[in-house]
């Protein structure tokens, strides 16, 4: 207050309200501030362990998987849908790649990866057809698909299947001090953010999510747009699955069990709403970053393992409750 009053810049009450409103309703921005604040506190509390290159590198490496998945999930959630099958799908993609290369080592590895990603994309097509064309509820479709894909993954890779070095490189080599998945993540987030925010085709998702019937009546081919979105989700899951298997040097059938709920949580914290029509890719990314940061902090601060889900649950409840309250007071979140 002192500074504002004595300085040249004077902020009126009305303007201050606008600033507050922008902060509260722009989820990516408010999460960014939170992340900065938390990081500052952690740096002061744990100067040795928190703010260093190694921790940053690990954080950005582990962020890649959930962050890439949030792109597809946010697009679906904006359209009022979601996809529970991404975890099974990514495990299956890794398992297929590894199984092909284990069975016939002479098989060119890019082709094996392509086969795996195409199969994952097909699972996305199946989800899209069932939800958008047959009219099955998204929860049921993708829940069933989750069981099917996870089952296939576990059957192929009950025991971890090692991947050849050529594949492992794709998920573990260092470029400019950071592991390569970090760069995949940045590229995919930027493309996703551009598509959803700037292209006409993907802007349709907001109309569909806000009111599908109205979108249909106004000439949007909602079925096809939804199908494309599910296909993107399947494709990204397949891609992440291969990168994950490469990064861990092996395909594991039960890998990332339950990640779908984590990704949905990140998207909701990042400003998406399960009733559809709102959310941004940057918000989703910040949501994923925020969640991972909380995980990291709990590890560094050595919070009891059994207590971690409890704290995450509380944060989630606070986030969604605040969202509802803010919406009632200030209108829609961006």
């Amino acid at each position: 207050m002192q500074a504002a009053a004595s300085g040249d810049v004077r902020i009126s009450a009305g303007e201050r309200r606008t600033v507050l409103r922008t902060l509260l309703t722009n989820r990516a921005l408010s999460l960014l501030i939170l992340v900065v604040l938390i990081s500052a506190v952690m740096t002061i509390l744990f100067p040795k362990y928190f703010f260093n290159y190694y921790n940053l590198r690990q954080l950005l490496y582990y962020l890649a998987t959930p962050a890439i998945l949030t792109v597809g999930m946010m697009m679906l959630i904006v359209a009022g849908m979601f996809d529970l099958s991404i975890g099974g799908n990514l495990a299956m993609a890794g398992a297929i790649t590894a199984a092909i290369l284990l069975g016939s080592p002479a098989f060119p590895y890019p082709l094996a990866i392509a086969v795996a990603i195409v199969i994952s994309t097909c699972a996305g097509v199946a989800n899209g057809l069932l939800v958008a064309f047959v009219g099955v509820n998204a929860l049921i479709t993708t829940l069933a698909m989750m069981g099917i894909l996870r089952g296939v993954a576990i059957m192929l890779a009950k025991n971890p299947i090692p991947v050849p070095q050529s594949v492992a490189n794709l998920g573990s080599i260092f470029v400019l001090g950071f592991q390569i998945p970090t760069y995949y993540m940045i590229v995919i987030i930027l493309i996703g953010a551009f598509l959803l925010a700037r292209t006409r085709y993907f802007r349709q998702l907001y109309y569909i999510g806000a009111n599908r019937k109205a979108a249909d009546l106004s000439g949007i081919n909602t079925r096809r747009v939804l199908l494309v979105t599910f296909v993107i989700s399947g494709f990204l899951a397949g891609f992440v699955g291969v990168v994950q298997a490469a990064g861990t040097n092996a395909a594991i059938g039960i890998i990332q069990d339950g990640i779908e709920l984590k990704v949905i949580t990140a998207v909701i914290i990042g400003g998406g709403s399960l009733s559809g029509g709102k959310g941004t890719i940057l918000g989703a990314f910040m949501g994923a970053l925020f969640m991972l940061l909380i995980d990291t902090i709990m590890t560094i601060a050595s919070v009891n393992n059994m207590f971690q889900p409890f704290i995450i649950g509380i944060i989630l409840v606070l986030a969604v409750t605040m969202d509802v309250v803010i919406q009632k007071k200030y209108g829609a979140t961006r």
């Binding site: 929860l139 949580t265 399960l274 889900p309 409890f310 995450i312 649950g313």
Partner: peptide
């Protein structure tokens, strides 16, 4: 709050 997300969060709290 949407039932899916509310009970998902509660499952973590109760489960924890």
């Amino acid at each position: 709050v949407n039932a899916l997300i509310a009970t998902l969060a509660m499952s973590k709290i109760i489960g924890g």
